Computed example of a mutant assay.
Amino acid sequence: MKNASLMKYGLFALIVVIGVALDQWSKWYAESWLATERPGFFSHPIVLEVPEQAEGTTVEAYLTETFEANSPEEVKTIAQLYTRTEDGQQLHPESELEAGQVIEVTNREVTVIDGYWDFQYTRNPGAAFGIFADKDSSFREPFFLAVSLLAVFIILGLLRGVQNDQRLLLWALALIAGGALGNFIDRARYGYVTDFIVWKYTDAHRWPTFNIADALICVGVAFMVIEMIRDVMRERREGAQIEEV
């Protein structure tokens, strides 16, 4: 019995750690390799230092090698419109670069599946999918920090009652806890959450931008609902068997 309990808590901790690590790594990628500029809201450029081997290359050639996930047309647009020196001077696709020169790219997105899935950087001061993002920060930030911690403590309390055969419920609680902790880390460090995953059906129909932590929470809730349905069906079967006897 003791070994089973240790395995339960060990598996829970492992899923949480992997979930948080995946979430934080993906946000590091978004912070490092995606850029956007929203006048009046925030500016998040990609800052690049030109290496020695790129001495004398053009802006377009350097960005083509650096941004391998972008098509040649996308790189050309970035080089023409969204590349500048660190002091704000606009660069051109044919501008030659010097080793050690620092340049900024003010807008970069990555297309995963054309027309359906993009990576686009944004900052979300609210909850999942931008809920309460327009509330005052003096209320919003401590409120969401408290809610995230409360959710984790509630999950730990629920974990105690998880039976050994309720593996799906264990996964559900671990995924929700991992997602809550992932976004909690962002809010504690920056006061906002980094979102970057865009699912859409053409530009006219877009799901709200989200991140890995949001996805973990949604999958965890789905697993929990499935487990609840299974419990109801199990109870009905057991009740039917008792009536037959």
Results as ranks from 00 to 15, higher is better:
N3W: 06
M7I: 10
A13C: 14
L14H: 07
V16C: 08
I18T: 05
L22H: 02
Q24C: 05
S26L: 02
E37V: 09
F41V: 15
F42P: 01
S43L: 08
V47K: 14
L48T: 06
P51M: 07
E52W: 05
T57L: 11
T57H: 04
V59M: 05
E65F: 03
F67L: 15
F67M: 10
P72W: 10
T77S: 11
Y82L: 02
D87K: 08
H92N: 15
P93E: 05
L97N: 10
E98Y: 00
V102I: 11
T111Y: 01
V112R: 00
V112Q: 10
R123W: 00
P125K: 04
I131G: 04
F143W: 06
V147F: 06
L149R: 07
Q163P: 07
R167K: 11
L175Y: 04
G178D: 03
G178N: 01
G179W: 00
L181Y: 00
N183L: 06
N183H: 07
Y192D: 08
Y192I: 04
T194N: 07
D203F: 02
R206A: 15
N211M: 05
A215P: 05
A215Y: 00
I217P: 05
V221S: 13
F223W: 02
I229K: 06
D231N: 12
V232C: 08
M233R: 15
E235C: 10
E238C: 05
E238T: 07
I242R: 15
I242S: 11
E243C: 05
